[in-house]
Design a protein around this nucleic acid. Structure first.
Length: 428
RNA sequence: GGAGGGAUAUCGAAGCGGUCAUAACGAGGCGGUCUUGAAAACCGUUUGUGGGCAACCACACAAGGGUUCGAAUCCCUUUCCCUCCGCCA
């Protein structure tokens, strides 16, 4: 969400940004929102002067009442009543134009960073760098569910009967691997100086609508029947919700948080649930990182954050690449974002396992999250988020990359303290 | 779940239909006087958002409605906190 003042003063910048994102259909919105804003301010001025007049007269009425000058007071009362209708009209108009303005502002994309590559859609995303050696072994790598089944590590049939498609039972070593990865990811971030946090897994409707659009809400969120509560789709929802409508003392920044939560997603719409396996599911667990920082530091944090993901995956012997989102593929709220993709020796290509985003001040403006500066003035912080690890999906990359010809799976050194063993063997 | 009490600035707290929300009164923070330095004392200063070129104005007393010429104050709904009872990991 952009600042209306910025749009008013820099309409050409806003329009060029829309063109860069190939959303030309939104171009007319810029002039429209500027016009509505002018109308809105006119109504506000009129409303406020009427209120000022009413306050002045009401005060006089009070004084007259005390002095028992009832007739004069009654006359003034009539005078105030005479323009209440006009006041109510201006109040209504001011509110309406404000809502119209906000609705349009929500649709205008955030100004992207100059470094973002210009491109129409995900096919034009840019590979920036590869890390590790993508290898294709000389034996065949089975589909990830098959690897898990060899360990008696997954039961999708029962999950379908119990909960439906998009859920899983993990068992034995595979379940332990899942927990180990989460615990390792948690400690990895704690060692980077992040504060570990376990947030609420259910949040209120007003928090949900604060952190996402209505369309996203409908496509993603599960609602608890008869309660004003939603299951979170990611811990980011409750983590950011924590700061809604607050003023943060500057000396507390940066907030560097790493949160754990289960994530629940309806996955309604475009992609739907992947038919086989644990690639795209209704329920998974995730370790996340969130940074709230001063605007001038956000790009530095962005670079640091995606590199943390790279470091974590390399420490588990999983080759990755950084894929930068081009302008057209970048979500409207984001200034810059990239995916960390893990190597799949089975598919002989990379697939998404982490998503790192710098949202600039857009999220803070929407949610009224402010920082009190040393000079006493408030400003909007920048907010970033990134995946540390989402085990069900990353287990695919883990198992494929650490699988040996004899069917056993090597446990990388970093994970051994959590797994207790160097390798795991399929059940006979 | 039942009964009662409460939510006002950084904190405590007064105000309980008007003429003290530019929020009394305390405390804390900041600046100053005094002091070799510190403490104490004294003086000053300390909310946010929006509109306006500005002077200034409007809005905000948990949130949202209502009554009224006028609401922190009265009424309704919701949320949170405290005390007691019941239930329960």
């Amino acid at each position: 969400m952009l600042d209306i003042k910025f749009v008013r003063e820099n309409p050409d910048v806003v329009k060029q940004n829309i063109k860069n994102k190939f959303q030309d259909e939104k171009l007319p919105l810029v002039d429209k929102v500027i016009a509505i804003d002018a109308e809105r301010r006119a109504h506000i001025s009129e409303m406020e002067s009427l209120r000022s007049e009413r306050n002045r007269l009401s005060k006089q009425i009070g004084i007259l009442m005390v002095q028992k000058k009832i007739d004069e007071a009654e006359q003034l009362k009539a005078k105030v009543t005479s323009f209440t209708e006009r006041l109510e009209f201006e109040e209504k108009k001011a509110k309406e134009t404000e809502e119209e303005m906000t609705a349009i502002l929500m649709r205008l994309p955030n100004i992207i960073d100059p470094s973002v590559p210009i491109g129409r859609d995900d096919s034009e995303n840019v590979e920036r760098e590869r890390f590790g050696e993508p290898r294709v072994p000389d034996f065949e790598i089975p589909y990830h569910t098959e690897i898990m089944e060899r360990f008696r590590g997954i039961d999708l049939d029962s999950a379908r009967r119990v909960s439906g498609n998009g859920f899983y039972y993990l068992l034995g070593d595979i379940a332990r691997l899942h927990s180990s990865v989460l615990a390792y990811a948690r400690d990895f971030m704690i060692n980077k100086g992040f504060t570990y946090c376990i947030p609420p897994f259910l949040i209120r409707g007003n928090v949900v609508s604060g952190v996402m659009s209505f369309a996203e809400m409908d496509a993603m969120m599960y609602k608890i029947e008869g309660e004003d509560l939603y299951l979170i789709g990611t811990s980011e929802h409750s983590m950011i919700g924590r700061f809604i409508d607050t003023i943060i003392p500057e000396n507390e920044l940066p907030y560097t948080l790493t949160s754990y939560s289960p994530c629940f997603r309806r996955e309604k719409g475009a992609h739907g649930i992947e038919e086989r396996g644990v690639y795209r599911i209704h329920q998974f667990e995730k370790q996340e990182m969130i940074v709230v920082c001063r605007p001038e530091e956000s790009m530095e944090w962005y670079e640091r954050m995606w590199r943390y993901s790279v470091e974590l995956f390399l420490s588990l012997d999983i080759p990755v690449r950084q894929l930068e989102c081009c302008s057209g593929d970048l979500a409207d709220l984001k200034v810059k974002s990239c995916d960390i993709e893990a190597w799949s020796p089975r598919q002989k290509k990379f697939f998404e396992v982490c998503s790192c985003s710098n949202l600039g001040d857009a999220q803070a403006r929407r949610l009224k999250i402010r920082v009190r500066g040393k000079d006493g003035k408030n400003y909007l912080p920048h907010i970033l988020n990134n995946t540390v690890a989402a085990p069900p999906r990353m287990l695919i990359a883990f198992l494929e990359n650490n699988l040996r010809a004899d069917g056993s799976v090597a446990i990388p050194k970093a994970l051994r303290p959590y797994m207790g063993v160097d390798e795991i063997f399929p059940s006979s």
